[in-house]
C-alpha cells in the first residue's frame, strides 16, 4: 500500500499539473447582504433610535434633565465618561446615554458587568441598546480603534446597591481599572456628576439571601415598591436630574502599554473620585428641592 515514489519519477510527471487547470480564485471579497444593522458589539442603531423615542418623554417631563458643561465632551475622538452610579435599577445610565446622543448626536457605548450578558432577554436588549461587557479589550477597541464615547461607572454594582442612608457617598472606584483603560487607549477621562438618580429609586434595605437564590448581584427593597406595589419594580420617583460635566482629565503616559504604575493609577482614580465627590456635595448644597431642583 505504501506508495513508491522517488524523485526521478515525480520529475517526469511534473508537466501533468497543467492537465487539470483549476479556476484560480478571483481577488474580490464577497460581502453578503445584511438584514439587520446589529454591529460587532451587538448594538443596533434602530433599537437605539426606538429606545430614544420611548425614553424622550421620561427624560423631558419626568426627570426634567438639566446638563451643565456638556461642551466639555469632545465632538470627535474617544473619551471615557465616568459617573456616580445610583438607584436600585440605575436611572443614570439611560439618562446620560440619551442626553449625549440627543445633544451631541454621538453614540455612547455603556460598559457594564457581565451579569447583563448572562441574563436572558435583558442581556439581548441591553446589548442592542448599546451595552458592552466591561472587558478591557472591548474598551480599548471602542475607545482607541473606533474613537467612540464610552460610559463607565467605576463603582460597579457597589454604587446602585447602597442603601438610601449612604446616598451621594461614592463607593470605592474598583481597582482603578478605568484609569488603565483610558491610559491604554490614550483618551481623556471625563467625570460626570449626577444628582437625582439616588432619589429616583432609593433602596431601603437589601435581601442578600434572595439575591443569591435568583443569582443577581443584589436584591433591593425600594421605597418605590412600598409606594406603588409591584409597579414599583420599574416606576421611578420623579426626582429632578442635574448633571455636571467636569473638566477632562488627561494622563501624560504613552498609550498601549502592557502595564502602568499601580500607584499612579490608584492616585489618579482617587483624585477623580475626590473631585467627583466634592462636586456632588457642591451640587447638593445648591439644590433646594429633590423634586424641583
Amino acid at each position: 500500500m505504501t506508495p513508491v515514489a522517488t524523485g526521478k519519477e515525480t520529475a517526469q510527471r511534473e508537466q501533468r499539473a497543467s492537465l487539470v487547470p483549476l479556476p484560480r480564485p478571483i481577488d474580490e471579497t464577497i460581502e453578503g447582504e445584511r438584514l439587520s444593522d446589529v454591529d460587532e458589539w451587538g448594538r443596533s442603531e434602530h433599537t437605539r433610535a426606538l429606545a430614544r423615542r420611548l425614553y424622550a418623554p421620561l427624560y423631558k417631563h419626568w426627570f426634567r434633565v438639566e446638563w451643565e458643561g456638556l461642551e466639555k465632551i469632545p465632538k470627535t475622538g474617544g473619551a471615557l465618561l465616568v459617573a456616580n452610579h445610583a438607584g436600585a435599577i440605575p436611572s443614570d445610565a439611560p439618562v446620560i446615554m440619551h442626553g449625549i446622543e440627543e445633544e451631541l448626536g454621538r453614540p455612547v457605548y455603556g460598559l457594564a458587568d457581565y451579569f447583563f450578558r448572562e441574563a436572558p432577554w435583558i442581556g439581548t436588549m441591553w446589548a442592542r441598546a448599546g451595552g458592552v461587557p466591561a472587558h478591557p479589550d472591548n474598551a480599548r477597541r471602542i475607545l482607541r480603534d473606533q474613537g467612540q464615547l464610552v460610559l463607565v461607572f467605576p463603582e460597579g454594582t457597589k454604587g446602585p446597591s447602597k442603601t438610601y442612608t449612604d446616598r451621594y457617598r461614592l463607593r470605592r472606584f474598583g481597582r482603578g481599572g478605568f484609569i488603565e483603560i483610558a491610559m491604554r487607549a490614550g483618551v481623556p477621562v471625563i467625570p460626570i456628576a449626577v444628582v437625582g438618580a439616588e432619589e429616583s429609586m432609593p433602596i431601603l434595605f437589601r435581601v442578600p439571601r434572595l439575591a443569591k437564590l435568583i443569582g443577581v448581584p443584589y436584591f433591593p427593597v425600594t421605597a418605590n415598591m412600598l409606594a406603588f406595589g409591584p409597579l414599583g419594580l420599574g416606576l421611578y420617583f420623579p426626582a429632578k436630574f442635574k448633571l455636571r460635566v467636569l473638566d477632562p482629565v488627561t494622563f501624560n503616559v504613552p498609550p498601549a502599554q502592557e502595564r502602568y504604575s499601580k500607584s499612579r493609577v490608584m492616585e489618579e482614580a482617587e483624585t477623580i473620585r475626590m473631585h467627583l465627590q466634592e462636586t456632588l456635595y457642591e451640587m447638593l448644597r445648591e439644590r433646594r428641592s429633590v423634586w424641583f431642583g
Binding site: P25, D27, E28, T29, I30, E31, G32, E33, R34
Partner: peptide, 13 residues
C-alpha cells in the same frame, strides 16, 4: 491573507 467571504457573504453562499 484575508478571507474572500465576509461572515454575511459566507451565509449567503
Amino acid at each position: 491573507f484575508t478571507c474572500r467571504y465576509t461572515s454575511a457573504g459566507t451565509v449567503e453562499n
